[in-house]
């Protein structure tokens, strides 16, 4: 696959204020991004996501390691590499509040050396696409937070660069606006076919949009895998059974042999059995055990794991098995 971004052994430390100590914000991070891919860069607060994104954007100089964008080393040819990148950093901070929506778009195009004539059609297209056409003459400080965010994304799209970096695109937005921005991002992914790196705490964004995720914790990459694979890896077959009575000693003995990790809470009227299955076929073994005494089964619930739980577990350093147990 054609790699558009290659991050290799990246390190960045900051000196603590009034101290000789250093904070290792990014500590030997390596990953690649394929052309046309949507990558989620995840991690808890202070994990090093924004530092990594800012180094890719050329806003921060790494202590060591290399970043290449479209084969261009950002340290050696920063401006050349920036031709291929645009970014939205922390939402509405990227705009001029005393300029209108259209003026902002025109100004940022001008700052990339493009004339108003060059981008006239592109701006019209973006205004329509981002549902900002009726607000084109509105000052940015009069727009809602969600509209400001949409405009910031439109500004990043305007450059038609190969890679777009979005740092927390839904941060601070209410549920409705967050949903709207998420839908907009889906449209961008579908219609514009760009390489996108999204750093987000919003796991819905990641699960909905990203093909692959790089999870960073304490400045290091802890996971680099496809979202689909992670969901499969942590696809927990954890069941909770409500039984209409107690299990016999023989049944308990058999359960211990076949499912050593199970949890049994006996009760004369409603016992609870929690069990993790390594394979889906094992459910028949469970039924065989229950059938021995024809124990009545009142209900069976399967625990479903979402990406947020997977993320939490990865960050805590749990494995898939540990996760299955705790579910």
């Amino acid at each position: 696959m054609d790699k558009i971004i290659e991050v290799n052994q990246l390190k960045k430390s900051y000196k603590k204020r009034r101290s000789k100590e250093y904070i290792h914000a990014v500590n030997d991070i390596s990953f690649t991004v394929n052309r046309g891919e949507i990558l989620g860069l995840l991690g808890p607060n202070g994990a090093g996501k924004t530092t990594t994104i800012k180094m890719i954007c050329g806003l921060l100089i790494a202590d060591s390691g290399t970043i290449t964008v479209n084969g261009i080393n950002i340290r050696e040819k920063r401006l050349g590499a920036l031709n291929h990148i645009s970014a939205v950093l922390e939402g509405n901070r990227n705009l001029y509040w005393r300029l209108t929506v259209k003026e902002n778009l025109e100004y940022f195009a001008g700052n990339r050396g493009l004339s108003r004539k060059d981008v006239r059609e592109r701006i019209e297209d973006l205004l329509v696409k981002f549902r900002l056409k009726d607000k084109e003459s509105e000052l940015v400080n009069r727009l809602s937070r969600g509209m400001q965010q949409k405009l910031a994304i439109a500004v990043a799209m305007l450059a038609e660069s190969d890679v777009i970096l979005l740092d927390e695109p839904t941060l601070g937005l209410d549920v409705e606006t967050g949903y709207e921005v998420r839908e907009l991002l889906k449209e961008i992914v579908r219609d514009y076919k760009r390489t996108i790196i999204i750093s987000s705490h919003d796991m819905d964004v990641v699960q909905d949009l990203c093909e692959r995720t790089v999870i960073i914790n304490k400045g290091k990459v802890v996971t680099d895998d496809k979202v689909e694979n992670l969901l499969k890896l942590f696809d927990v077959r954890a069941y909770t059974l409500n039984l209409g009575g107690l299990l016999s000693d023989e049944q308990q003995q058999l359960l211990l042999q076949k499912f050593p990790q199970h949890e049994y809470t006996p009760d004369t009227y409603e016992s609870i059995l929690q069990i993790n299955l390594a394979k889906s076929e094992e459910i028949y073994d469970l039924f065989d055990v229950l059938k021995l005494e024809t124990t009545p089964v009142e209900s069976i619930d399967r625990s479903i794991v979402n990406f947020e739980q997977i993320f939490m577990k990865i960050v805590k350093g749990d494995t898939a098995d540990e996760m299955a147990q705790s579910s």
Binding site: I85, G113, V155
Partner: peptide, 12 residues
């Protein structure tokens, strides 16, 4: 405002 970062990302 944060626009300085945006300007710094310009290839110009």
């Amino acid at each position: 405002r944060g626009t300085l970062e945006q300007l710094s990302m310009s290839p110009m």
